[in-house]
Design a protein around this nucleic acid. Structure first.
Length: 529
DNA sequence: GGTTAGTTGATATG
DNA sequence: CATATCAACTAACC
């Protein structure tokens, strides 16, 4: 035992990459400082209990599995490997701290409440075992805590305000992949384990999912190499980068009209900071280009915006107790929710989007707008939290901060307040796909409906429906609500809810003013001066 | 207190 | 394709 090396652990959670990974670099530097004493073990912890209750759809499990596989390959290239440890982090760590003679632990910080608690617990255990812990904020371009601090310890609630703060913050360069480690850093002293360390292998897909029938086509393979290649492919297209304006991209093109880099950013397969710098290199060479908030760089900044807000409120994913969210009396409706989430609302545009989501794990941002508005303030009057849960399960890029923030935006619960702007489940999609090709792809039962009527099949006579081979109520659902009337009813419900929220706010302001008057501690000081 | 601006609505009209 | 209207929101700033 006396000859056992001291182990340096880098703990991967998000940030599944070897490029631009400051915590991994720190770990490698420690090892390189004295390779005869230190060895590196990069780990990923797979919690079998989480598999049971975590709402992660099959497509995202596959994306994670592929990301771990590529991470393992990329670590092998620097003479290391990935150790996938099965167990719960707080119980696993004390064991490996002892078994592996651990002296140092590095990881990337996270702002999600579950992660914050977990990391605090692990830090305590590390302290008890005399393990040094180093954390780095590298999931976002700007450290959310720093932005909060620069804004007087509160979140900027408008994009412009956010931008005015971060524009003054210098973004340091992205880091390279760590240099190759000395060969000897792979531990050989783990006697109780078999030689190949098979128990630490990257899980096969069937360890993560039980029902492979839920897997859709593999349109966006997971992993660092995939993410970097995808970035490269888009960076080459200077014209695309410089003219990109989100509102002008199509929500219902058959192939994505946007980059689909979001799943890679979510898992940290791609560094947002690298994306930021690479993007700026292209923009610098081409002074005439689109600008935030609609530009590609602007999209990246929205991610930062939501991360900062989310970091300031552990209830960011709930309506009640959320300092950003208006309180709106949404109503439960299991039938409507089921119809929405499985693409059976009877509105072909909405249903096509929801089916694409379930099959492929990605839908265009504006398509998310359309279905989110439909579920909440537009038509079904169901809480944004319900929609959030469905997205959380099905999106490859589901991200706690962005998902909640965007749901609040679309339901006009926070950040966005022009609730009278309602997306039409009929008209919106027609603008970019008048033929309804997208609908025909994802709702093939409607494939014989002509362009003029495919967005509103209820307008077809029964005879026509029979002629098109798709009778409503039998082959495709009747629409569950009448948008033309219900969106107006909902509009007045929103107006009512807004009034109440305003009153509530005024009352709070009044009482705090009164308190100041009744108990003028701070102002008395001023008066003395 | 008043004004202005806010990533991405729909519709009617010229 | 551009603009006004619909009914009228909020946060930030002066």
């Amino acid at each position: 035992m006396s000859t056992q090396k001291r182990t340096v652990i880098h703990w991967f959670r998000k940030g599944l990459r070897v490029h631009d990974n400051p915590a991994l670099i720190k770990a490698c530097d420690t090892v390189r400082s004295n390779p005869t004493v230190y060895c590196l073990r990069p780990i990923f912890i797979l919690d079998p209990d989480l598999l049971k209750w975590l709402k992660v759809g099959a497509n995202r499990w596959r994306f994670l599995q592929e990301s771990l596989q590529q991470l393992h390959e990329n670590l092998t290239k620097i003479n290391s490997r990935l150790y996938v440890v099965r167990g719960n982090p707080t119980t696993v760590f004390p064991k490996i701290f002892e078994n592996w003679n651990v002296v140092q632990l590095t990881f990337e910080t996270d702002i999600e409440p579950y992660s914050v608690k977990r990391d605090n617990d692990v830090e305590v255990k590390a302290f008890e075992h005399g393990v040094m812990v180093y954390q780095f904020a590298s999931h976002t371009i700007y450290n959310p805590q720093l932005v909060l601090q620069k804004n007087g310890d509160k979140a900027p609630v408008t994009y412009q305000k956010f931008m005015s703060i971060v524009e003054k913050i210098k973004v340091s360069a992205a880091l390279d992949v760590p240099e190759k480690l000395p060969k000897a850093t792979i531990p050989s002293n783990d006697s109780e384990e078999n030689q190949n360390n098979k128990c630490y292998d990257v899980p096969a897909l069937n360890e993560l999912i039980s029902d492979k029938s839920l897997l859709g086509p593999r349109k966006f393979p997971g992993g660092e190499t995939e993410g970097l290649n995808r970035l490269k492919r888009y960076l080459k297209d200077t014209e695309y980068i410089c003219t990109f304006e989100k509102p002008n991209t199509s929500p219902n093109s058959l192939e994505p009209s946007t980059t689909v880099l979001s799943p890679y950013l979510k898992f940290g397969c791609l560094s947002s900071r690298l994306f930021f710098h690479k993007l700026n290199e292209v923009l610098k060479k081409n002074p005439k280009h689109s600008k935030p908030p609609t530009s590609l760089l602007g999209q990246l900044m929205w991610r930062e915006f939501y991360y900062t807000a989310a970091a300031s409120d552990p209830n960011f994913d709930k309506m009640i107790g959320n300092k950003f969210s208006y309180q709106i009396p949404w109503q439960e409706n299991k039938t409507y929710l089921e119809a929405w989430s499985h693409g059976k609302t009877g509105y072909p545009f909405i249903d096509a989007i929801m089916r694409q989501l379930r099959q492929e794990g990605w839908i265009h941002h504006l398509a998310r707008h359309a279905v989110a508005c439909f579920l909440t303030r537009g038509d079904l009057w169901i809480s944004w939290e319900e929609g959030q849960k469905v997205f959380e399960e099905l999106l490859l890029d589901a991200d706690w901060a962005l998902n909640a923030g965007n749901w609040m935006w679309l339901s006009a619960s926070a950040f966005f307040y022009k609730y009278f702007r309602v997306y039409s489940p009929v008209a919106f999609g027609k603008k970019t796909d008048p033929e309804g090709k997208y609908i025909k792809k994802y709702c093939p039962e409607l494939k014989n409906y002509p362009a003029g009527i495919i967005y509103e099949p209820w307008k077809a006579s029964l005879n026509s429906q029979k002629e098109y081979g798709c009778v409503l109520g039998k082959d495709y659902p009747n629409r569950i609500v009448i948008h033309e009337t219900i969106h107006k009813e909902n509009l007045s419900k929103m107006a009512e809810a807004y009034k109440l929220n305003k009153q509530l706010k005024d009352n709070v302001n009044d009482t705090s003013k009164k308190r100041k008057i009744e108990n003028p501690k701070s102002s008395s000081k001023k008066m003395k001066k």
